[in-house]
Design a protein around this nucleic acid. Structure first.
Lengths: 205, 205
DNA sequence: TACGTCACTTGACGGTGGAAAGTTACCACC
DNA sequence: GGTGGTAACTTTCCACCGTCAAGTGACGTA
């Protein structure tokens, strides 16, 4: 068959970045299940096998996407913590609030980030981004432990409680499973504001 | 109770129940992603289009599976609450502990139950089972609210905090994302025991 | 100029869920 | 005691998916 002599045919320029951008667009607009390699390839005018050069396979692409998401989230959390000042509780709430806001803005991406079965969790890019994100929570918990001379198990439980609460609340919300809850709330109370009250139920820090 | 028929060529006898059982077996052994209509159909010696008669489509089958899981979990939680006695905190912890134990025993099923995109959340069978499960948490929160004369928003936040904690901790655990946390814990501390400590971080009831 | 590698295309394979139409067994009714 | 309808299952087809192997063209380099 005729070969199309398009100079850009063999060198898209920045296909890798374009694929990631298009994948994120699809994921956040139509959900993780709507994403396919063939779909994003066609959208960029490239054949279905092109992504393999840059990402190997689908989990490979998703891993890079997730790692990027984790990094961006961690950056925003770091900024929020900085702005929150020295108070430990303020800092913890800033981390949680920022996560939730990010999850509302990018529900598909956050869903992907927490779905180990769709990515290669062991990739350095993900492990490092994950560690960076966890470091902030650990720092707060450690300071609190030192200040209150807490038993190490209690300190670990506080860390885990905050993580579980952030993850649980965000996922329940994204999944639409807090609908009845919000229906019973006062008019005008936003999910963000309610999350602050929920966080206050935790006895930490 | 379903009538048992003669398993002849065109009437399997109890295909519906057999499909659900096989699907649950696959899900809990190999994960939700390993499940396919064709797979379970072949395992039962039936063609891939047979399930459509009983469930319509794949989300239809998954919905029935999820509803059954929710019902069984709710029954176990009800029994645990009954055994826990009158103390509100004991009852709340019993609900949470039972959920987590169920999640450890049936990770695939619990994952499915919390994945709205794979099921028809609006089906009566699911909505009723869900409501039944939520009723127990609501009851505790209401009693606590009355006893302590709490602001309604605070009471709603307590309900939600418990739900988020249960869901978040279980999911993080199932996904293997608490690995580093457990590594830092004292020898012999089980995930169940640690969950009790995590639950104590919540100031409720 | 020749070579090797990168970036992408082409075409095929086995898998998926779903829809449409055909077959067979049973059951109620006249 | 035939007849018609319906439920349960099969067969065949379609569109789509990810992955793989082989091919092709452009480019940097020796």
């Amino acid at each position: 068959m005729p070969q199309v002599k398009d100079p850009s045919a063999h060198h898209h320029g920045n296909l890798r970045a374009a694929l990631l951008a298009e994948a994120e667009r699809v994921i956040d607009n139509d959900g993780l299940d709507a994403l396919s390699l063939r779909g994003i390839s066609k959208a960029l005018g490239v054949t279905h096998a092109a992504p393999a050069n840059h990402f190997g396979d689908l989990p490979g692409l998703l891993s890079e996407l997730a790692a990027d998401g984790i990094r961006r989230l961690a950056a925003r959390q770091a900024a929020a913590v900085k702005e929150a000042g020295p108070d430990l509780r303020e800092r913890a709430h800033a981390i949680a609030r920022t996560y939730f806001k990010f999850a509302v803005e990018h529900p598909g991406l956050v869903t992907l980030m927490s779905r180990s079965n769709r990515l290669y969790r062991d990739r350095p890019s993900i492990k490092e981004a994950d560690a960076e994100a966890r470091r902030m929570v650990d720092e707060i918990a450690s300071e609190n432990q030192k200040k209150k001379k807490l038993d190490p198990v209690r300190a670990a439980a506080e860390r885990t409680a905050l993580r579980a609460m952030i993850h649980g609340y965000s996922m329940l919300y994204i999944d639409g499973r807090l609908g009845p809850t919000f229906a019973s709330l006062p008019e005008g109370m936003t999910p963000e504001a309610f999350f602050d009250v929920v966080l206050d139920v935790i006895d930490f820090p």
